[in-house]
């Protein structure tokens, strides 16, 4: 039975490849799919939402990371591979999802590959703890050494970067389907206005707080912290898989105590045990922040969006940091 399934899958993949090849060979001008709509693949949730909002009913958006899954380590299924090969445009962020990027690189020339980091000012991954990079740092292990100084991929957690990406998506889709360009621009303007409002709400909400220190599970909130004048200190490194050493955890606990931190934040979809250890150590509580790398099925069913989840994040931050 599994044998016949493998055979069917192999057949499906070869047919898909054949189809793509014939499409690429005989229709280099018309690069839309059979129903006439642009086929757009989005690497993970926030990009997905931008593509849906800008494209509206005029494009068919294929989401890749399943609801509730972790986006860093995502690997496409064979079915998604076929979808990707049939897509007109793929939107992704370079150096964030290594497994997916390998697949994107190998896609045929008929698929336009758009790295949405273009036009975004990248922030560098700093040392984990402000002021300790000279002394303790050399003992903190290879991961952090390698990570410090390279680009932080979590750009979407600053609404300003979402605006930049929205503009890029509108431009690319408009170029791919010139007759719909005006509609894409109009959609983008509507979404950008919502992002502006979100940006203003964040700036106002976080303007006056008792604490400006954000202790998080991993280094995902650097852009958000930079945008609104907060200082991020992360338990683990830039990727959630990394483990801190005992000394790192101790140094973070001391820093957090010295800065009167009352809440340790951890991310949805990740184990909270290290955050709890740290919270116990300094007598703080814990709270959940969403990295928005993916929304759960429940959230999607409830109609959650980038903007609504960011608003939840803001409410959590305001309550925990003592904002007025």
């Amino acid at each position: 039975m599994s044998h016949s399934r493998t055979a069917r899958r192999a057949l499906a993949i070869s047919l898909a490849a054949l189809f793509t090849a014939s499409l690429a060979a005989c229709s280099s001008v018309d690069d839309t799919s059979s129903d006439g709509r642009l086929e757009v693949a989005a690497a993970f949730y926030p990009i997905d939402e931008i593509a849906q909002r800008v494209g509206g009913a005029l494009v068919d958006v294929v989401s890749l990371v399943p609801p509730g899954s972790e986006a860093h380590e995502f690997e496409p299924t064979p079915q998604q591979l076929a979808d990707l090969e049939n897509a007109d445009v793929v939107f992704y962020l370079a150096d964030f999802q290594p497994n997916l990027e390998k697949v994107i690189e190998s896609l045929p020339a008929s698929v336009q590959k758009v790295n949405l980091l273009d036009g975004i000012t990248m922030r560098q991954i700093g040392s984990n703890l402000p002021g300790t990079d000279d002394g303790d740092h050399e003992e903190e292990g290879d991961h952090e050494e390698a990570a410090a100084g390279s680009d932080d991929p979590h750009v979407w957690l600053d609404p300003a970067n979402m605006r930049t990406m929205t503009a890029t998506v509108a431009r690319v889709l408009g170029a791919a389907s010139a007759s719909d360009a005006a509609a894409f621009e109009a959609n983008a303007a509507t979404y950008t206005a919502e992002l502006d409002t979100l940006d203003d709400t964040f700036a106002a909400g976080l303007a006056q707080c008792d604490s400006d220190v954000l202790v998080t599970g991993h280094q995902a909130f650097g852009y958000l912290a930079d945008a609104y004048g907060l200082t991020q200190v992360a338990i683990a490194g830039i990727s959630p898989g990394e483990e801190p050493s005992a000394q790192t955890l101790e140094a973070i606990a001391e820093f957090a105590s010295a800065n009167d931190v009352t809440t340790i934040f951890f991310e949805e979809n990740l184990p909270d045990d290290l955050a709890r250890t740290l919270a116990d150590e300094i007598g703080a509580s814990t709270a959940v922040l969403s990295t928005l790398e993916s929304l759960s099925s429940d959230q999607l069913d409830d109609g959650a969006t980038y903007i609504s989840v960011m608003e939840e994040n803001l409410a959590t931050l305001c309550a925990s940091l003592g904002c007025r």
Partner: peptide, 9 residues
């Protein structure tokens, strides 16, 4: 499991 739980833990 759809969480960050890893075998190595």
């Amino acid at each position: 499991l759809d969480t960050g739980v890893e075998l190595t833990h």
